[in-house]
């Protein structure tokens, strides 16, 4: 078994993929916890899908699709974030609209671009072959940014997640903290889509945090455990997808979902027993 795993990771692209999983797991664990605790899963989904518009536009104009995705996701994070601050119900509609516009723009501009574009599927469904050295650098930068932000601003983040009104009364910079968090969600989504794809990235963002939340009662601990779980799912997903020749993204998500359902079941059984 260990010998097999060693062989798998002797390939350069697999080493890249493994390194990529570790970097994105750091960002995913932290940001995912904030997404789950702030109940902004659909907002994050909107940001992810709006990013696809950036991929299409950048591709059409001959730029790096990652750059387009980063720009689009940050911008849409700000727009949806400001709307969300003003009215939660109004934002719900706007999120739905921007979600679809992003996808539509992406699909149309990619269709308008002449030439071979199989590679673009990797933005939707992820591909371990797609992780380049420059992607790795970007992942590292984003993950370290996320880590720095949460270390320096932990009490702010905890406070606005738990009780926004009280934080406002204390004159904490609620809007600034909130929007910074959303932009970091956008960046995390974009770097993670290389592994699992845009469509599945929300699952990877939320499931490890949801599992960790079942067992732990401290935001710091939940962030750490979801980082570990995300790395574990990515690693196992890589190995399994290599062995079975299946796509990595869906394998990772199915693994994560399986563990989530199992954890929820265990918790339920425990609760019933304790009664």
């Amino acid at each position: 078994m260990i010998e097999q795993i060693r062989t798998i990771f002797s390939y350069g692209f697999m080493q890249n993929a493994l390194l990529a999983s570790l970097w994105i797991s750091l960002a995913i664990g932290i940001i995912g916890t904030l997404v789950v605790l702030n109940r902004i899963v659909s907002l994050s989904g909107g940001i992810a899908h709006a990013a696809y518009g950036g991929v299409g536009l950048a591709y059409y104009f001959g730029q790096d699709p990652m750059l387009g995705a980063l720009l689009f996701s940050s911008l849409s994070a700000l727009v949806m974030g400001v709307a969300h601050r003003k009215s939660k119900t109004g934002a719900d509609t706007l999120i739905g609209v921007m979600w679809s516009i992003g996808m539509a723009v992406g699909i149309i501009f990619i269709a308008m671009t002449p030439g071979y574009k199989a590679n673009l599927m990797s933005y939707l469904f992820g591909s371990i072959l797609a992780v380049s050295a420059s992607d790795l650098k970007l992942m590292a930068v984003v993950s370290l940014l996320v880590l720095a932000f949460v270390v320096l601003s932990y009490r702010n983040l905890l406070a606005i997640s738990y009780d926004e009104t009280f934080s406002t009364v204390r004159n904490a910079h609620v809007n600034l903290i909130y929007l910074t968090m959303l932009v970091l969600i956008g960046l995390t989504v974009v770097v993670s889509m290389r592994m699992v794809g845009l469509i599945l990235v929300i699952a990877l963002l939320t499931i490890p945090a949801a599992i960790a939340r079942i067992f732990l009662k401290d935001m710091r601990g939940i962030m750490a455990l979801s980082t570990f779980l995300s790395a574990l799912f990515c690693f196992l997903g890589l190995v399994i997808s290599y062995q079975t020749n299946l796509q990595t993204g869906p394998v990772i998500i199915l693994l994560a979902s399986g563990v989530y359902l199992l954890s929820a079941l265990v918790k339920k059984v425990q609760a019933v027993r304790n009664k």
Partner: peptide, 14 residues
């Protein structure tokens, strides 16, 4: 209870 000591600023509550 520590929320009672929140101050304005992105990094003033580290």
């Amino acid at each position: 209870v520590a929320m009672g000591r929140l101050k304005p600023g992105l990094f003033s509550n580290t």
